[in-house]
Amino acid sequence: MRVAVTDACIFIDLIELEMITSFFQLDLELHTSVAVINELYPEQKQILEAYKSVGKLHIHNLQEDDFLEMKQIAFPRGLSQEDRSVIYLAKKLGGAIVISSDKLVRDFAGKLNLPYHGIFWILDQLVSEGLIEKSKAIQILSEMPKINSMYQAAGLKREIEKRLALWN
């Protein structure tokens, strides 16, 4: 089982796109931080709390010594404390996968030689592992630009179109 650390934007998109149940069926040991959880709305927190209660999500409450260790990492200025906690946890957990839709997070994870992926990788995994049908994935792809304007950007539109062509 691969270990992965997830940020808030991924959780938000997975919940909005109704993929969260399938996501937690992937062969991943999923982690995040209290700081990330605190970025979510109460109903989103409640959904994730259910996965925590059955051992599917590990939520780390960083301590003072963790924050001291984090100060030793030359994070880019644009990274929030929550994003920093995701990268720190991935390092602390022995090179866990960073799962984020935030380019700055993924780029910095790459600089630290941490594996990283985003929402499209999750969708690819769900289809390849048979956790969702291609028809459902196509429906999700069409919903993405509606729930998050980020997916209207040219590069992300190409990712959507590539998968639409592959799964149609």
Rank of each mutant, 00 (worst) to 15 (best):
M1R: 10
V5S: 04
I10S: 01
D13S: 07
I15F: 08
I15D: 03
I15T: 09
S22I: 02
Q25W: 03
Q25H: 11
L26G: 02
D27I: 00
L30E: 07
S33D: 13
V34I: 14
A35T: 08
V36Q: 05
N38R: 15
N38K: 14
L40K: 12
Y41W: 15
P42V: 12
P42F: 11
E43M: 06
Q46N: 14
A50S: 14
K52C: 07
K52P: 09
L62Y: 12
E64I: 12
E64L: 13
D65L: 13
D66L: 09
Q72T: 14
Q72W: 11
A74K: 13
P76S: 08
G78C: 11
G78K: 07
L79A: 01
L79H: 05
S80A: 02
E82A: 06
R84C: 08
L89D: 00
A90N: 04
A90L: 08
S100T: 11
S101W: 01
D102C: 06
V105T: 13
R106L: 11
F108K: 06
F108V: 08
L112H: 09
L112Q: 13
H117V: 03
G118C: 04
S128C: 00
E129F: 00
G130M: 00
G130S: 02
S135W: 07
I140C: 04
S142I: 14
I147N: 07
I147C: 05
S149N: 14
G155K: 12
G155H: 11
E159S: 10
E161M: 14
E161G: 03
R163N: 03
A165Y: 01
